[in-house]
Design a protein around this nucleic acid. Structure first.
Lengths: 223, 223
DNA sequence: TAGATTGTTAATCGATTAACAATC
DNA sequence: TAGATTGTTAATCGATTAACAATC
């Protein structure tokens, strides 16, 4: 089993790039072309495929259609992924309208909110009362949830979902959820992403200024 | 200059944990406590701090207040970060209402959209016509942008922003932006995050089943 | 002081890259 | 066949962890 997160993320990127190649009319592809398209080395591509036992043809490269099929299989895209969304506030209701989920074979089966005012049908997805969350998860065998509740409610809602059988949670709250069982949590913390980016922007600025300074020193040293 | 992205992400997590310790009335903290709070080793904590020349007191640990101050400084949180948001559709307008940005000292100075119907004031942030984006960035010296436009418009909007002087972009479109200058792009691709999580959920399932199977084989071999 | 914690060096671990035999 | 590309092994690179001298 491959546990390298970056490697799995690359598979998604390969898949997306392959769709573009396919739509351009390509039938086969070499590792080096795919590598260029996603900005990695060709050795990386072949190594990644090799880890998942994906084999190409020596001299002939990889058949795009077969490659997409295998990647879809690994990434669970050959079946519709049923998810529930909990918390239909600003972000939650925006995600209910997010087109890309459907495009990517992700079906939000239902949404849940504690506030009766939000309990209605938004863009075809029912928003149900929170009491119905646990039975719904059990009845439909849902394993994946998107968590968009206010910070204060995040941990208790998470615990509730885990007990009901949820195995993976995409967590939009800035809380670090305490995980007791084997549930997999992916945090999407927008403030932290921005913070991180700002650090690198500032760092690049400083590096640029330092380079300029060094350069001037160099010049003055020469002159 | 530290270029390890994971390390910088950990700084954010240390900072958040330190705020919790502070609110509990703590004044000083040892690396091992902080490590436990964010789920890393104490060696990791000390190493990370050491990389940024953050020093504690032998035997006395770190003074929380000073530590927060230094982390804020590194992460650019001692000044308000001015950002613009482009694309006030579902996701964009949800982000305009997102409370956490303000809490974290991130100020959305203005939003921009090509659709006149969206050009109004949402929750105190003006949504302006797209023509005003470039002059606004230049006039206000904005360096950070949040990109929420439809896929088809992502690249051209990005190019526009870069030319105007934007140095960092939080990209919500599933497009891999082609970067020519030194602009830093952070992609937030929700479908890919879900895809990745689904892989690990399935992998865990399979591993669990395999373990069960091995166990049964073990038992039958014994009996 | 004795004991405990830091800061840093060295060791380990894991991921990426390079290189090349196999082979189409 | 000759040439080019794969699949994999070995080498490199970078990040994490362990260990321990310095020291409060």
């Amino acid at each position: 089993m491959v546990t390298n997160k970056n490697c799995v993320l690359r598979l998604s990127r390969y898949k997306n790039a392959l769709h573009r190649f396919k739509s351009l009319g390509f039938f086969k592809i070499f590792s080096s072309y795919l590598a260029d398209a996603v900005g990695v080395t060709s050795a990386q591509v072949r190594k990644d495929f090799s880890l998942f036992n994906i084999m190409g043809n020596k001299r002939g490269g990889y058949v795009i259609e077969q490659l997409i099929e295998k990647l879809n299989d690994i990434l669970g895209k050959n079946e519709v992924q049923q998810v529930v969304l909990v918390g239909a506030g600003n972000l939650g209701s925006a995600l209910l309208k997010y087109k890309n989920f459907e495009k990517e074979g992700i079906k939000v089966e239902a949404a849940f909110d504690i506030d009766p005012a939000k309990q209605n049908s938004k863009m075809g997805v029912e928003v149900l009362p929170l009491e119905r969350l646990v039975p719904f998860i059990k009845d439909h065998g849902i394993r994946i949830a998107i968590l968009c509740v206010p910070d204060i409610a995040a941990q208790q809602t998470f615990d509730l979902m885990c007990k009901a059988g949820i195995k993976g949670v995409l967590n939009f709250s800035p809380i670090e959820l305490k995980v007791t069982d084997g549930c997999i949590v992916t945090n999407v913390n927008l403030a932290v992403e921005l913070e991180n980016m700002i650090y690198f922007v500032n760092a690049q600025d400083k590096a640029g200024q330092a380079a300029l300074r060094d350069n001037e020193e160099g010049i003055s040293a020469i002159s």
